Amino acid sequence: MLEGKVKWSNSEKGFGFIEVEGQDDVFVHFSAIQGEGFKTLEEGQAVSFEIVEGNRGPQAANVTKEA
C-alpha cells in the first residue's frame, strides 16, 4: 500500500488526484474509495491505496482514508 494526500477532488464529477511524494500524481475515481455511504475525499486528506493500470494509465484502487 502507498500513502499520499488528496491533491484535489471533485465530488460532482466523481474523481480527483492523490499526491505521492517523489512520484507523479495518481488519478482516483470515487468507485475506488472503500467504505459505506457517500464516498468523498477532502483536499489534503491522508489516504492509503494501491496502484492499478486503468484505461488511461495508472490509477488508485482500494483507497482508504487515514484517521
Rank of each mutant, 00 (worst) to 15 (best):
I51C: 06
E66Y: 15
G37Y: 07
G16M: 05
F27A: 01
N55T: 14
K13Q: 07
I18F: 02
T64E: 06
F15D: 00
A61F: 10
Q59F: 09
T40G: 08
N62K: 10
L41C: 04
A61G: 07
G44F: 05
F17G: 00
N62T: 06
M1A: 09
F27K: 02
K13H: 07
G35A: 07
F30R: 04
G16H: 03
A60I: 03
F49M: 03
K13D: 04
R56I: 07
Q45T: 11
G54T: 13
P58F: 09
G22F: 05
G44N: 05
V28Y: 14
V47G: 01
D24P: 15
S48I: 13
P58C: 08
W8V: 00
T40M: 10
K7Y: 04
V26W: 03
T64G: 05
H29K: 05
A60R: 00
N55A: 14
G44E: 02
D25Y: 06
A46K: 15
Q45F: 05
V20Y: 06
T40Q: 09
E19H: 11
L41P: 01
K39C: 11
G14E: 06
G35N: 07
G14R: 13
G14S: 10
F49I: 01
D24S: 12
V63Q: 03
E42H: 13
K13A: 09
S31D: 05
V20P: 01
D25I: 05
G14Q: 11
K39M: 11
V20H: 03
F17W: 08
F27W: 06
E53F: 15
D24N: 12
I33E: 04
E42F: 12
K7F: 05
F30W: 10
V26H: 02
N62Q: 06
K65G: 07
V6I: 12
V6K: 01
A67K: 12
R56C: 13
S9L: 15
S9G: 05
T64I: 14
F38V: 13
T64D: 04
A61L: 07
V6Q: 01
N55L: 14
V20Q: 03
G22L: 04
F30N: 02
G4Y: 04
N10W: 09
N62A: 06
V26S: 00
S9H: 09
A60S: 03
V26N: 00
Q23F: 13
V63L: 07
K5T: 11
N10E: 02
V47T: 02
S9R: 11
E66D: 10
G54C: 10
P58W: 10
V52S: 06
S31K: 05
E50Q: 14
E43I: 15
G22K: 04
A32T: 07
G54I: 05
Q34E: 09
Q45G: 05
R56M: 09
E3T: 15
A60P: 02
I51T: 03
G54H: 06
E36K: 11
G37I: 08
F38I: 13
E19P: 02
V52M: 08
A67N: 12
F49H: 00
E50K: 10
K39L: 10
G35C: 10
L2H: 10
V20M: 08
N55S: 14
E12N: 10
R56D: 06
I18H: 01
M1R: 15
G4I: 05
K5G: 03
Q59V: 10
K39R: 10
F15V: 03
F15R: 00
R56W: 15
S9M: 15
L41E: 00
W8E: 00
G4H: 01
V63W: 03
V63N: 01
E66K: 15
Q23R: 14
V63S: 02
Q59E: 11
E12T: 12
K39A: 09
A60Q: 00
K65R: 11
E66G: 14
A61S: 10
G37L: 09
E3Y: 15
E66V: 15
S48N: 08
A67I: 12
K7D: 00
V20E: 00
E36I: 11
E50N: 13
T40I: 11
E12G: 10
Q23M: 14
D25M: 06
G22T: 03
N10L: 07
L2P: 02
A61N: 07
D24W: 09
G4Q: 01
E12F: 12
D24E: 11
G57P: 04
E21C: 14
F38G: 10
A67R: 12
Q59Y: 11
V47M: 03
F49S: 00
I18D: 01
Q23I: 11
H29M: 07
V28A: 04
Q34H: 09
G44Y: 04
F17R: 01
K13C: 12
T40V: 11
K5Q: 07
G16Y: 10
E42I: 13
K5V: 14
S11K: 15
L2E: 04
E3R: 15
W8M: 02
A32H: 06
W8H: 03
G22A: 04
E21M: 11
G4M: 04
H29I: 06
N62H: 09
G4T: 02
S31N: 07
E53H: 13
F17Y: 06
S11Y: 12
M1W: 12
F49Y: 02
K13R: 11
E21D: 11
V52E: 06
K39G: 09
G14H: 10
V6H: 03
G44Q: 04
V20W: 08
E53A: 12
E42G: 08
G16E: 00
T40S: 11
G16S: 04
E19Q: 13
E50Y: 14
S48W: 15
G22I: 03
A67H: 12
H29D: 05
R56S: 08
V28K: 02
V28F: 15
S11P: 14
N55I: 14
M1T: 12
G16V: 04
G35F: 07
